[in-house]
Structures are given as structure tokens and as C-alpha cells.
Amino acid sequence: MAERGEAVDWPRRIHAVLKEAGIGVVGYVPDAGHKRLIELCHADPGLRTVVLSTEEEGIGLAAGAWLGGARSVLLMQSSGVGNCVNALGTVKECRFPLVLIVTMRGEYGEFNPWQVPMGQATARVLEAMGVVVHKVARPEEVAPAVDAAARLAYGGYSCVAVLVSQAVIGIKSFQEQAAQ
């Protein structure tokens, strides 16, 4: 698919990075910011794409997949990070590798006040649980950060989260989100 003008098709680039990194399982709770990547993953027969009822399940899914020899990534919104906190303790204790790709809310130009507390705490909550945080604020930085996260996670047996800024996602109103 041709990229429009100067826009970077960062979801497609993430998908390519996931293939390169040997990812076999993708767990997600949908977020508008992940819409295109989720569609790309579902369309790829080489990925087992698993819709979760809550983000915490994804931590279990990823741990189980790794026990069975498969690499995975989890896609979620920043609010979902709060649903994972206790499970991240297990990731740390067992030294499970884990890659989280988190699209931010409550951060850059947020329009919903209910998103702000968790969005503002996301990085600190992750760091408190021993997760390495890579923040990206420009479209062209996203895929390289996911690549680095996968290398650190699976080469360095670490838990790594890529936080994709709302500045990249660019949704500024309820109306825009509903029109996705």
C-alpha cells in the first residue's frame, strides 16, 4: 500500500517488524490507535491474533506462549496498563520476555478527562513494576522502537513497553474517534 504524501504508515511498519522478530501470537484489547495494526494482524495467517476480554489476560497469554516456545506481543491502550499491574509481578519474578505496544490516551491533547489520571501515570506504573519504557512521539520512531523492544525482550529476557504518544495517533475529539 502506497503511503499518502509524507504520512508514515507506522502500523504497517510495526507489522513488518513483528514478522522480522518472529512473533507468532498477538494479543489485544482494541484501541482506536491500534485499529489498523489489528486489521493487519488479523489478515496475516502467520499470526495467531487473540482478542482479549481484558489486558491482564494478555500477560497470561504471552507467558503461556513463551513457555510453549512462541514469541508474542500485546497491543493495548494506556488505560489497559492499569489492568495488568499484578500480572506484571509474575512477569518479573519468572523473567518472562514481554513486549507491550501501548497507544496513549490522557496524554497529548486529550479531550476526555477520565482518561487523564491513568494516562499520566502509565509510564510510572510500568516502571514501578520493572518494565523498560520506550516513549515515542513521532510516527517514524514507532517501528524502530518496537524493533528495539523485541530485541531487548527476547534477547535480554526483559519486559519492554513502547508508549506511542497521542501526538502520533492524532485523535482529538469524540467525533473523530467515532468516525474511525
Binding site: V50, A63, G64, L67, A70
Partner: peptide, 8 residues
């Protein structure tokens, strides 16, 4: 959930 990941 861990069982699911392992089974897949």
C-alpha cells in the same frame, strides 16, 4: 490464560 497461550 496461561493455558491458552501454551495450547496455541
Amino acid at each position: 490464560s496461561i493455558g491458552l497461550g501454551l495450547a496455541l
